[in-house]
Simulated scan of single mutants.
Amino acid sequence: MPVYLDHAATTPILPEALAAFTAALGTVGNPSSIHSAGQRAKMLLEDGRAAVAASLDADPVEVVFTSGGTESINLAVKGMFWARQQDRRRPRIVVPGGEHHATVDTVAWLEQHEGAVVDVVPLDAQGRVDLTALEARLADASDVALVTFLWANNEVGTIAPVSRIVELAHAAGVPVHSDAVAAYGQVPVSFAASGLDALSVSAHKIGGPVGIGALVLGRRATVEPLIHGGGQQRQVRSGTQDAPAAAAFGVAASMPHADVRALRDRLVAGVRAAVPTAVLMGDPVDRTPRQAHFTFPG
Rank of each mutant, 00 (worst) to 15 (best):
E16W: 00
Q86K: 15
G127L: 04
L226A: 03
T103Y: 00
F249G: 05
R88F: 14
P289F: 08
A245Q: 12
R234F: 08
A169P: 13
D143Q: 13
P175W: 03
V181T: 11
G98D: 09
T148Q: 01
T27D: 01
G218K: 03
V189L: 08
V285F: 11
V63A: 01
P297A: 02
S238G: 06
E99V: 15
A54F: 00
F191H: 10
L56W: 13
V118M: 02
A54T: 08
Y184T: 06
V275Q: 10
D283P: 09
R90K: 15
Q233R: 06
A108N: 08
P2H: 07
A274Y: 03
Y4V: 00
A133P: 06
Y4R: 00
L215W: 00
D105P: 06
G229A: 10
V210E: 14
R272M: 14
G127M: 02
M1W: 08
A243E: 02
M1S: 12
A51D: 10
F65D: 01
G68A: 07
T240A: 08
R264V: 06
D259K: 05
F21S: 03
L267S: 10
A9M: 04
V63D: 03
R164T: 14
T288M: 11
V176F: 08
A19C: 02
R49W: 09
L215I: 12
D119C: 10
T295Q: 11
G282L: 12
R287A: 15
V176M: 06
L131W: 13
A253D: 01
A183Q: 11
V279I: 15
P2V: 07
P122K: 04
T158I: 05
A253Q: 05
A19V: 02
P289S: 11
G230C: 07
D265K: 01
T222R: 15
D87P: 01
A198H: 05
A198S: 15
G79Q: 00
L44A: 04
I212D: 04
